[in-house]
Design a binder for these strands. Sequence first.
RNA 1: UCCUCGGUAGCUCAGUUGGUUAGAGCACCUGACUGUUAAUCAGGGGGUCGCUGGUUCAAGCCCAGCCCGGGGAGCCA
Length: 462
Amino acid sequence: MAAFKPLIREILASGTPGETVEVQGWVRSRRDSKTVTFLMLNDGSNQVGLQVVADTTRFPEELIKAITTGAAVWAQGRLVESPGSGQKLEVQADALQLVGAADPQSYPLQKKGHSLDFLRTIPHLRLRTNTFGAVFRVRHHLSQAIHRFFDERGFVWLHTPIIAGSDAEGAGAMFRVTTLPVLPEQKPLEELLAEDFFGTEARLTVSGQLQAEAGALALSRVYTFGPTFRAENSNTTRHLAEFWMVEPEAAFFDLQDNIRLAEEFLKYLMRYVLERCPEDLAFLARHYQADLITRLQACLEASFARITYTDAIRLLESSGEAFEFKPQWGMDLQSEHEKYLAEKYFKGPVVVTDYPKDIKAFYMRQNGDGLTVAAMDILFPGIGEVIGGSQREERLEYLQQRMREMHIRSEELEWYLDLRRFGSVPHSGFGMGVERFLAYLTGMSNVRDVILSARTPKNIAF
RNA sequence: UCCUCGGUAGCUCAGUUGGUUAGAGCACCUGACUGUUAAUCAGGGGGUCGCUGGUUCAAGCCCAGCCCGGGGAGCCA
């Protein structure tokens, strides 16, 4: 098998001074001297790139001049130890080619740093910046770590559907999927839907959990990893209309097993990225969050704090903190409450368990007290809820009773009830928002900056 | 959706009480200098002040509506 031309990362890892190499990439900056031109080349394979030194007397002036910031360049030359102070190795060019020019008048990226705000308007080009190179390399390694973690523990990757038939789960507004014309003829809804692609209403999924439960009650341990959609009109640093979610589901797991799985999972991911991406994390720390690496390491060493919802309410009540919303049993924790718990009181990830049943989903397992369910949320400093999960209600009668109480139409969920009719077992699972956790890992403060192109209200370009 | 801050050169921003021809740094172009590291120095080009309407002798600045963006809230992962 013939080898591909090496990436810059590979050249720097295994190249030896004196050998002839080929380099290809995009120019981050050009610095001219009387007799030499310095090209900082980056191909996205690492943070630092590789400096190509071109003797100006050996190349046409027009060629050198055309190699501007953003241009794509191919070079061949000798790998040598650099006399300059910024890098160990550099390439003395023998051959140089402009592969693709970039008009310096209109190329939007400069050698100087840009605001994340501005870069969000050019998602197709921001990938070429140090910041987004780092973010997307970390995102890749994070994804690999997710698969490895579950594979090592016998979890099967289950590809759950993207198009969903019903909104029975009630996890927020859903996008409709249709092939009907934009302005349909006036007809009764039933008739219209009958003509639609699926012959009934279809929507984009908000979760693969219910199908994952079917998987878990057959394969014992499964997980999903894919895109998820919410049509909520949310405009925050933590919400996207399209985001990626990981949802493990395990048979014979109770809530405690579930929490242990989640904590091991998050720590595995942190450890993996710390090991694989030291250069990128160091860059992100330098530019966005000075204590990023020490914070991750500290998070790895300590056990996640645990508290029941009821105790959390008591703690908030007696905190002496001037909350805008008074903590009250039966009400959802407000952002300010979550922030107090994770950032001020516990100063790290905290697992809140056993929420009142009325503020949680119908499928969560009812506790013996008749008031709470076996739910757990994991709250992180800065980003809030990263994981939400529960032990599922495996008892048919309890599940049906909750569905009646919450006015959930059971016709569409008969298949889900079947899982309780035939060989039901205790089982648990959770969902993790990949972008939220990635934001925590990279020190980015907005989930829009850790995804290729953010889908948010009024934003679909690229 | 609500609250709040904002929209002035390619980018980041300044612009006084409403008053002549709207500025700076960086980027870009030209030149000088230099094994450079966000190179440096000198000069130059570059503007529908978000849009629409209004007040006024006069609007970047005041008023109204709308559009777009940031942050916060709600909802959630």
